[in-house]
Design a protein around this nucleic acid. Structure first.
Length: 408
RNA sequence: GUGACCGUAGCUCAGUUUGGUUAGAGCGCCGGGUUGUGGUCCCGGAGGUCGCGGGUUCGAAGCCCGUCGGUCACCCCA
């Protein structure tokens, strides 16, 4: 029996998990502030949901899905992303009106692990379903930005583009194809392959892009409605004071995107995978799944990459009190801890019967703000209260504990 | 799927050059110094199939072969 977590998966233990807890709590806060309700969907779906939703030709679907047959002979797949599931759930519920949904949890892709890329990774995200308004795009982009700023991601930048829709994109792709054919000699092998499957992805190629500065840009070939939509997204973001950079080369790897496409990049993250989030509009996705036409826009942020961008943080452990048991006062100490916990304080204590010295050491390691000693003073209804930062201590009555904790 | 590098204590590593007695250090952990006081200091202790398997040898952590795992990059993406 090996105790190693499966390849490409990570255990998150303290103290690293303090950062995760903070990020998850902040996510609940920020998504709720913008009016997004919690949406829970299964971690696995019928394989078809992703095959059709994400796109048959995409790398994710072709090579990266955890697909297996269940005992009923159904082909199911561990979700490689969140959007298709949420849209499927919305369709199942009737797809009426507007749904602003927020989710968080693990996603699964079978890949070779590297920095910022795991087989099981965590995302938080939102989907704004049922609206075609540019204001919805702007709101979504803003929320992701505000959250990442609050999380403390350094070197953050928002990159934005419009890749057109089913009206204008075919003509553009033809034009791009003609151009790329003329530059065949400078394209790498991968780009030559993409020229056949998805020409827009060639623009994203790190190797070829520098040689293709003259390539027609999607944003210059938008139809009038797409151009107007894009313009409104940009002006709204400016009004909302969200800094962004126009990224004419930004295309997305999943088939369902239309019009707005964006990424959040942690520019000073050294790793190759420096996009901490991405998203866009996907007005055609619901139809791909076999439902009616439901417009939508959303994003997903990679928590693992956010943690990576934050560096090795020493997050404070928010313990208000550590209770030290002296002499034969175990029962009283346990009861006191319970009372204080019920009153709302974060409290812990030793249950191993260790020495007072060991208990103080534990209090210090845990980062407790203060320690209460339950000992002989208990007979008078009092405890020793010690400030673990200053080292000052005094004897106080039990009634004074709450006030002592709130001392300046 | 492709490539490069790396596997010795919980962690970071030394030891491999030139195979040779009981495999080391720092940090961390536990205990003691202080029978009721942490963070500094001093002392002590626990903890190792040297990734695994085979081969060469009188003798392998070290050399050879294989295998598994890890890391980073490509690809792709959050």
């Amino acid at each position: 029996m090996s105790f190693r977590a499966p390849k490409g998966t990570d255990d998150v233990l303290p103290p690293a998990s303090h950062t995760w807890r903070r990020l998850l709590l902040a996510w609940e806060d920020w998504s709720a502030r913008y009016g997004y309700d919690l949406v829970l969907t299964p971690l696995f779906e019928a394989t078809e949901v992703f095959a059709r939703g994400v796109g048959e030709g995409t790398e994710v679907v072709e090579k990266q899905m955890y697909t297996f047959e269940d005992k009923g002979g159904r082909s199911v797949t561990l979700r490689p992303e969140g959007t298709a599931s949420v849209v499927r759930a919305f369709l199942e519920a009737g797809a009426g009106g507007i749904l602003k949904g927020a989710y968080s949890g693990p996603m699964f892709r079978y890949e070779r692990p590297q920095a910022g890329r795991r087989r099981q990774f965590y995302q938080v995200g939102v989907e704004y379903l049922g609206s075609r308004a540019a204001a919805a795009d702007a709101e979504v982009v803003e929320l992701g930005y505000r959250y990442l700023v609050a999380a403390g991601v350094p070197g953050l930048s928002v990159e934005l583009n419009s890749i057109g829709d089913r009206q204008c994109r075919p003509a553009y792709v033809r034009k791009l194809g003609t151009y790329l054919e003329s530059r065949r000699d400078v394209l790498c092998d991968d780009s030559l392959r993409r020229l056949e499957t998805n020409p827009m992805r060639v623009l994203d190629c790190k190797v070829c892009a520098p040689k293709l500065v003259e390539a027609p840009s999607p944003a210059d070939h938008l139809c009038a409605p797409c151009a107007a939509h894009h313009e409104e997204v940009l002006t709204t973001l400016t009004e909302l004071e969200v800094p962004y950079e126009e990224a004419p080369r930004l295309v997305r790897g999943l088939d369902y995107y239309e019009r707005t496409a964006f990424e959040y990049v942690a520019t000073d993250l050294g790793a190759a995978q420096d996009a901490v989030g991405g998203g866009g509009r996907y007005d055609g996705l619901a139809e791909l799944l076999g439902g009616k036409r439901v417009p939508g826009v959303g994003f997903a942020l990679g928590l693992d990459r956010i943690v990576l961008a934050l560096g090795v943080e020493k997050e404070p452990n928010p313990l208000d009190l550590y209770i030290v048991v002296a002499g034969d006062r175990r029962k009283e100490a346990v009861r006191l801890a319970s009372d204080l916990r019920r009153s709302g304080l974060r409290v812990d204590l030793d249950v191993e019967g260790r020495s007072v010295k060991a208990q103080f050491r534990a209090a210090d390691r845990r980062g407790a703000a203060g320690a209460l000693v339950v000992g002989d003073e208990w007979a008078d209804g009092r405890v020793v209260a010690k400030d673990l930062t200053s080292g000052d201590q005094e004897v106080i009555s039990l009634e004074e504990v709450q006030a002592w904790v709130r001392r300046p």
